[in-house]
């Protein structure tokens, strides 16, 4: 298991796409938004949490199809399925590797980018907390979607279509936590809910992902 995590991280780093690509995408989206909505600081300030959350979601989506597809193509997935490691564990470890290469850096960088969007100073801590609690759910849900579409030649677009609706509750609670944090209307409830979604996904979805992988390997 640990070996798999290290291998996935090493592959992400050496393939060059790992840490850099998701972050660069995140940055570009944040830079493009003011061009789209205009440089008005009050508007930007109001939408900053939402923009950061949606951008984080899209950046996480960007690298999802690589979670299983490469291992499926070169046969490593079939070998892992016959190796003495549970496929559920493989799914969870791969989701963890995805989170370390995308979710974690996004969480760390988001407050910095909030600066460019004139985010309310009160929002920084909530932004960080909600992303830290919510991005694990994005990775685990994404790994389920990636497992569903692993056998398809052009699964990328379908993957987004399947995964984005599943992201709705995480996005709602995550962005709501920041909004309520700024308005001082009680951010604890949405923060706990977003954490609950992450924990629930981590506990249950690897089983669904493993079941789906076994079907795709048949």
């Amino acid at each position: 298991m640990k070996a798999l995590l290290w291998r996935d991280l090493a592959l992400a780093v050496r393939a060059g796409g790992g840490f850099g690509l998701g972050l660069a995408f995140f940055l570009i989206v944040v830079v493009l938004v003011p061009f789209g909505v205009g440089p008005d600081r009050t508007i930007l300030s109001a939408i900053a949490p939402g923009i950061l959350w949606v951008a984080a979601l899209l950046a996480a989506l960007l690298s999802l199809d690589r979670i299983f597809a490469l291992d499926y193509e070169d046969g490593a997935l079939a070998l892992l399925a016959t190796a003495p490691v549970p496929l559920e564990g493989v799914a969870l470890v791969k989701a963890l590797a995805h989170w370390i290469t995308t979710g974690l850096p996004l969480t760390l960088v988001a407050p910095l980018l909030g600066f460019f969007l004139n985010m309310d100073p009160a929002a920084y801590a909530y932004m960080f907390a909600s992303l830290a609690l919510g991005t694990p759910a994005l990775s685990v849900i994404g790994s389920f979607g990636a497992a569903l579409t692993v056998g398809l030649r052009r699964g990328g677009l379908l993957l987004s279509l399947l995964v984005l609706p599943l992201y709705v509750p995480t996005l709602i609670f995550g962005a709501e936590a920041v909004r309520r944090g700024v308005d001082q209307t009680g951010a604890a409830a949405p923060l706990m809910l977003v954490g609950a979604i992450s924990l629930g996904c981590i506990a249950l979805l690897p089983f669904a992902a493993a079941a789906v992988l076994r079907i795709n390997l048949r």
């Binding site: 609706p165 709705v168 509750p169 709602i172 609670f173 709501e176 809910l193």
Partner: peptide, 13 residues
């Protein structure tokens, strides 16, 4: 499961 979750999330929102 996620549809039900979304329904309650949306009401919360």
């Amino acid at each position: 499961v996620f549809a039900i979750l979304s329904r309650y999330a949306v009401r919360f929102w």
